[in-house]
Amino acid sequence: MSSPVDLSPKTSFQGLILTLQQFWAAQGCVILQPYDMEVGAGTFHPATTLRALGPKPWKAAYVQPSRRPKDGRYGENPNRLQHYYQFQVILKPNPENLQELYLASLAAIGVDLGLHDIRFVEDDWESPTLGAWGLGWECWCDGMEVSQFTYFQQVAGFECAPVAGELTYGLERLAMYVQGVENVYDLNFNGGEGADRVSYGDVFLQAEQEYSRHNFEAADTAMLFRHFADAEAACRSYLAAGAPAEEGGRHRMVQPAYDQCIKASHVFNLLDARGVISVTERQSYILRVRELAKACGGAWLLTEAGGAALAA
């Protein structure tokens, strides 16, 4: 029985996502759903940030809607969006053949490696807000960056032991490439033809316009400043509430605290887009978020998933 729509990764945006999920599921990854909060990148998902810490092996893949309020262009730029999708893969420890796996995943979504020039170009990744850094590459396909490939060395201020490999696919860019379109809004989303065709623009253009207005013009800055302070305080109080009663005990409330760290980070991004944070203040806000991330990372290492039982 043939499908009424074409779910090939070269024909539809969702086909691309489904193919990547299939590919990484076959590698033993747990396929998660997006984290249910606003984040700037797939790395913020606790499945990456927290799970990258501690000795326990972990393999996961998921799509993560990512919000970059400053990148909004009112739907008028063919490449830039304030909301877009990342496909995130995290493998701890990184397998020896991670580069080969990555290339195989490109082949799976229809990139012919005998026809296209794939290159690994130096890119040292750093997230000042997460207190994280790693070494790796931008992966280029015919001169276009389509993914980031990072060996995490440190997350939330803690050394990664063992090191996790992180792959981040820019889904819209990849889809534009394999579908051969020049404007993101022209992407075929569902693989339908004629009246059944749903484009990326059908799904997201209006949202891009509305959120650009919101991010640059309307976002309530007084409320946001309040929310930042509230999230910061809440993060600290949840961490304190869950702290181990005695030396060597477990932490019992890391993930709710980390949610508040994520929230503070996104609120900061909104304030930044509104242009109400000066250059000097900017640094201090980034630092405040990093302190939260570090505190959450430290607490995570005192939980079972963080490997506390193994260490004891």
Partner: peptide, 12 residues
Amino acid sequence: PKSMRWGAASAK
């Protein structure tokens, strides 16, 4: 100038 650890061995 910059170096890194990797893989299962990086746990030690």
